[in-house]
């Protein structure tokens, strides 16, 4: 299985096995359930659709209600497809709860989320520009400016993709290789070391690390 849908609860610190305090993000994956499946015969690819978060049926549109009815599953607020091999998909039936024990302590995971919105931001926040290096010697109203944005007559234009002020945040970001510090199956919690994209209560996708998987693939290919 290739992942879970979760809710970012917030950050705290816990003691690890060595007795050192490590920063962790708590992710709630309590209501993850298999809602449907994609099969190569019907859809040309294989995937498992997971649902997360409870929702009243009343607030759903008829087509969405129909999807849940067809699969005979309780309605869920968030749906997400995870691509898996057909063999792996065989192990999952519609209606099955997917638990936090999919992940083990020490495993590396990738976490995808939507980052916090920062509105229209200047270059210092958006691109980590350094800003003006002096506040005195006649400098005024220039402390957070971007400086020069090009050359002279040649080329006579600003290059495309030049880092400038603009809208920042509210974009999908994946943080790779976060290690799982603890798993609480009973409460449906996963604790990962470090920060995770998004605000508290944001929906995040937790997947096994792709880099670890690739490394293993290369190893297998080399024999």
């Amino acid at each position: 299985m290739k992942g879970l849908i979760g809710k970012k609860i917030g950050m705290t610190q816990v003691f690890n096995d060595e007795g050192n305090l490590v920063p962790v993000t708590v992710i709630d994956v309590n209501t993850c359930q298999v809602m449907g499946k994609r099969t190569p015969e019907k859809d040309q690819y294989s995937a498992v659709t997971l649902g997360f978060g409870e929702v009243r049926e009343k607030v759903l549109t008829q087509p969405v209600r129909g999807f849940f009815k067809k699969n005979n599953a309780a309605p869920r607020r968030h749906l997400k497809e995870f691509r898996v091999s057909p063999e792996e998909a065989a192990g999952f039936n519609v209606g099955d709860a997917v638990k936090a024990d999919m992940f083990a302590k020490g495993q590396l995971v990738d976490i995808t989320g939507i980052t916090k919105g920062r509105g229209f931001s200047g270059v210092m926040r958006r691109w980590s520009f350094k800003g003006s290096q002096t506040k005195t010697h006649g400098t005024h109203e220039y402390q957070r400016h971007p400086g020069a944005i090009g050359q002279r007559k040649t080329p006579g234009r600003t290059y495309p993709n030049k880092k400038m002020p603009g809208h920042y945040g509210v974009e999908q970001v994946t943080t790779q290789n976060l290690s799982v510090v603890a798993v609480d199956v009973e409460k449906g919690l996963v604790l990962v070391k470090g920060a995770v994209p998004g605000h508290n209560d944001a929906i995040v996708y937790v997947r096994p690390s792709i880099k670890v998987a690739m490394r293993e693939q290369h190893k297998a290919a080399r024999g």
């Binding site: 917030g10 409460k187 919690l189 604790l191 508290n200």
Partner: peptide
């Protein structure tokens, strides 16, 4: 609820 879950996690390390 958010606070509860965090507290639940933290209480294990007391």
């Amino acid at each position: 609820m958010r606070r509860d879950l965090i507290q639940h996690v933290e209480s294990k390390y007391l």
